[in-house]
Write a protein that binds this DNA or RNA. Structure first.
Lengths: 109, 109
DNA sequence: TTCTTCTATCGCTGTTCAACGATGAACGAG
DNA sequence: CTCGTTCATCGTTGAACAGCGATAGAAGAA
């Protein structure tokens, strides 16, 4: 993942409401969560929530599936894994260059 | 790490120039990197670079050490580790709630 | 058909960000 | 002391963001 993309995703995650939305989607993953469902969990207007979801969509963290009159949103598990790998790679890369030691990857709790 | 703090740090990382600065600091860690050193690696004005460094300082990702007439910046290794743990916890938390049953992960405070 | 629900998008406002040049403070060298 | 260097900060500009209400389109219900 390039720095440019990584920065984009980080920025998408750089808002507490969007982190909340991700958690809400994760919780309700079974029950096909739509925009109004998310809105009811948050003290924000529907249009605002829709905007935040769009940011997550554009960042590729969330997927939309039209289901009748409503849109169901789901987390993109593959992208979350990629992102986890990219960030841990970033951090361990930075840290390993500090200690000037050969690359340490695994870190048991 | 709270969502609020996590979002703050993410936002600090949500700019490609700031990712570059972190990498530059990691590279030159041995040779006590100051603001002009960083500026020379980037196509930006000194004031702009200083601003970006300030963002990283405020996010706690970087440390300042006055050394005569210049300021040396170093990565905060402890915070990077914390952040790595927090993000991997976030992602694995989201993913695990998708794939499996409600495994509630307590926050390590 | 008409009505209702859901939702993305538009328009707007106020705030924050990104980038720059200029400036002044701090400090070492001379 | 005076000069040069370093750097944070100020002031400004234009762009992007965050939030809201209003609205229109799509689709199911009546």
């Amino acid at each position: 993942m390039q720095d440019e993309d990584l920065a984009n995703v980080m920025r998408a995650l750089g808002h507490p409401v969007r982190l909340s939305i991700l958690r809400i989607l994760a919780e309700k993953q079974a029950s096909a969560c739509c925009c109004t469902d998310v809105t009811q969990c948050l003290p924000l207007a529907q249009s605002t929530v829709s905007q935040h979801i769009k940011v997550l969509l554009d960042a590729g963290l969330v997927e939309r599936e039209a289901r009748g009159t409503r849109n169901c949103y789901t987390l993109r598990e593959d992208r979350l894994r990629d992102l986890g790998a990219a960030t841990s790679g970033l951090f361990s890369g930075l840290v390993s260059e500090i200690t000037s030691a050969p690359v340490r990857i695994a870190e048991p709790a």
